[in-house]
Design a protein around this nucleic acid. Structure first.
Lengths: 204, 204
DNA sequence: TAGATTGTTAATCGATTAACAATC
DNA sequence: TAGATTGTTAATCGATTAACAATC
């Protein structure tokens, strides 16, 4: 009977988590909503409201226990249950993501990469094998992977997405600058880097 | 006397832009708010309201001219005036971004990379030189660059951000999973990849 | 004309902020 | 106790959706 947490709240919770990691490194024991709010330049009552979703009680006139708060964010956001994924497209971005060890800390395990380039197939990146895309449907059936990280060139994105969906993929984390069309029941998260850049620089 | 466009609207405008690029490739001439809304799974009156910010008139019972609409989005979001940036940190992610030619299409020009690793300094990536971080303050003063793309390891992020700010950087596009503390007048955009992943997979 | 779609206003919904009693 | 901070309710603000006249 969990309340649904909106994307905005979820996003702020991950930012609090980043801050808490720093605080733990610096051996800080308590943090107040006012301090967190100042760092994110938001209202302190919003911080308290966000935290209220975690059922993690704070202490009057002291603040929140840094370690306990970090744990409850992890529990709520589900870092604990590891999710497995394949990277589709072993280009620059796919390779960079394969080498990004920080994923493990957040419960994301990359099992392998897939590509069509015979030159790349068979090589490994960060202990992950680059495989022929033809092998994907079979492997999906045998494993319990249902997340695909899509890092193919823009023109390949839609046909590849269709192929992935047909092969049984349920979640696509899309790094291509294109809006994918997928059937009901398949979820796409668009990681539109250029969109973020434009938002960032709009006021420059 | 321009109305301020919120981040949410800006984000949708870039998504419309992605769709319009596909439509142009497929030689489609008109698109309706209903079509755009269906692809993004949002309300069609929202699409019309977003587009109303562009002062780009649609045609009754026909829709919007695809090419004209794409141009007005580009004009409004400021693709035209090219922005110059340095990449700070020539690791996997920094290299991947340096190789990402799509930036040019959106008015972002990467001039060079900076690192502390003597092994890397002097090499080039995609025609961009990797330089010694010590050279940065001087170069910033000589050029009109004020955007830094920060792709250093997490522990280096805050000290490096401070160094950048002291050197005159006004905008930091932060790819490290940490919340930077910067003085008034400096803008930070956090590209928190893990945060996005957690939002995406929260309901899995 | 009948049908489709825009542009815009009003109604609804949700997110943020203000305020303050309760607590330590 | 005086001071600080939480937890929560009410007030405000902004974003989304519904509705429909105007247009082609």
């Amino acid at each position: 009977m969990e309340k649904k947490i909106s994307d905005k709240i979820l996003n702020r919770l991950t930012l609090y988590h980043c801050i808490l990691m720093d605080y733990i490194e610096r051996n800080v024991v308590y943090v107040s909503s006012k301090q967190l709010a100042a760092l994110l330049k938001i209202d302190d009552s919003q911080v308290r409201k966000d935290i209220s979703f975690l059922n993690n009680p704070g202490k009057s006139s002291v603040g929140y226990d840094v370690i306990a708060l970090k744990s409850s964010i992890e529990k709520t956001l589900g870092f604990s249950k590891t999710k497995k994924a394949f990277i589709i497209g072993a280009g620059n971005l796919g390779m960079a993501l394969a080498k990004y060890d920080n994923f493990q800390n957040y419960g994301l395990s990359i099992l392998a990469l897939f590509d069509i380039d015979k030159e790349k197939i068979g090589k490994t990146v960060n202990n992950k094998l680059i495989m022929d895309i033809d092998k994907l449907p079979n492997l999906l059936r045998k494993s319990d992977v249902d997340i695909a990280i899509l890092t193919v060139p823009r023109k390949m994105a839609q046909p590849m997405a269709t192929f992935l969906v047909d092969s049984g993929v349920k979640y696509i984390w899309n790094f291509s600058p294109t809006v994918l069309s997928v059937p009901e029941g398949v979820q796409v998260w668009n990681e539109n880097i250029m969109s973020n850049f434009l938002q960032f620089t709009y006021n420059i």
